[in-house]
Design a protein around this nucleic acid. Structure first.
Lengths: 151, 151
DNA sequence: CTTGACCTTCCAACGGTGGGAAGGTGCAGG
DNA sequence: CCTGCACCTTCCCACCGTTGGAAGGTCAAG
């Protein structure tokens, strides 16, 4: 299998497969005489693993750890579960942050006419000297501000 | 006010304030004879606006649009509301994706002993030829795969 | 042999943010 | 006045994960 075949089979772009090799996430593929990378069924399985872990939102570093455990026949299932549950906690924290944002936005938008008049409480509040958060219960929102944006 | 003062007042780092200026999000600050950037109360207000919109998860591009509307005295509140509600929709979509991930992970983890035995359904499933998603209702999960990772 | 689909490596960009080097300024204390 | 320190300036680099493109080599079918 050439890189294009395995890219199709796994859904990972050829670019990314080369990148994963370069950064050491997967081991370097064998080469044909032409210099083309040649992949085995084993490689296919590994890359499928990577793809799925990626779909589940694991970082490349976490996948690296998981792959090590995956390859280790004597691993303890507790180690895997620990990584997975730690990741679940991170996902849930992020969900809460997103929820706080939407709550705030919906609150602001609910007071906005949404017509052709210029007055808009969304802009007014963003520009004012007061804090934005109209939801006093989530007092620690301020600390967790720097994270990924929504595209 | 120098850049450090305004950085403290807004919670945006001096680095980022220079970056926002460089990329055109905010207009270039006036300079003192020394070359130091000097900020007015007006600038403070603008940067506070930026900071809050950022806290609400808007991208820099979206903030650019919002700032334009903010400065336009004749804007229609509908335009602002549209941007805000579009953003809410994006946030909600992302939350759903995160929820699908956690559901899948919790499902996998619930079948994992989590002891010192090596057998672990999390790894087994990730490496298998079958699809990961054990939740047939979210059939379009596959399409929306490439997005930010959770740190 | 030509054509087109594939492969190779290399270099750059994205969005946001942080780090640090090398040098200039402003102000207080001695 | 000199020294020291906190601050400012510009510059370049790194991160993560991914995409794009250029310039060139290879393979298989027509």
């Amino acid at each position: 299998m050439n890189i294009g075949d395995i890219a199709k089979a796994t859904g990972i772009s050829a670019k990314m497969i080369r990148y994963y090799e370069e950064t050491g996430l997967i081991r370097a593929a064998n080469r044909a005489l032409s210099g083309y990378r040649v992949y085995s069924d084993n490689d296919l399985q590994t890359l499928r693993f990577v793809r799925r872990a990626r779909d589940l939102g694991f970082t490349v570093k976490q996948i690296d750890d998981l792959l090590t455990l995956w390859r280790d026949r004597t691993r303890a299932s507790a180690s895997v579960k620990e990584i997975a549950m730690g990741h679940v906690a991170a996902l849930e924290k992020k969900m809460q942050e997103l929820k706080d944002m939407t709550d705030t936005l919906l609150h602001l938008a609910s007071n906005c006419h949404g017509d052709d008049r210029p007055d808009c409480p969304i802009l007014r509040t963003l520009g004012s000297a007061d804090a934005v958060a109209p939801l006093p219960k989530t007092r620690d929102r301020r600390k967790t501000r720097a994270f990924d944006r929504v595209r």
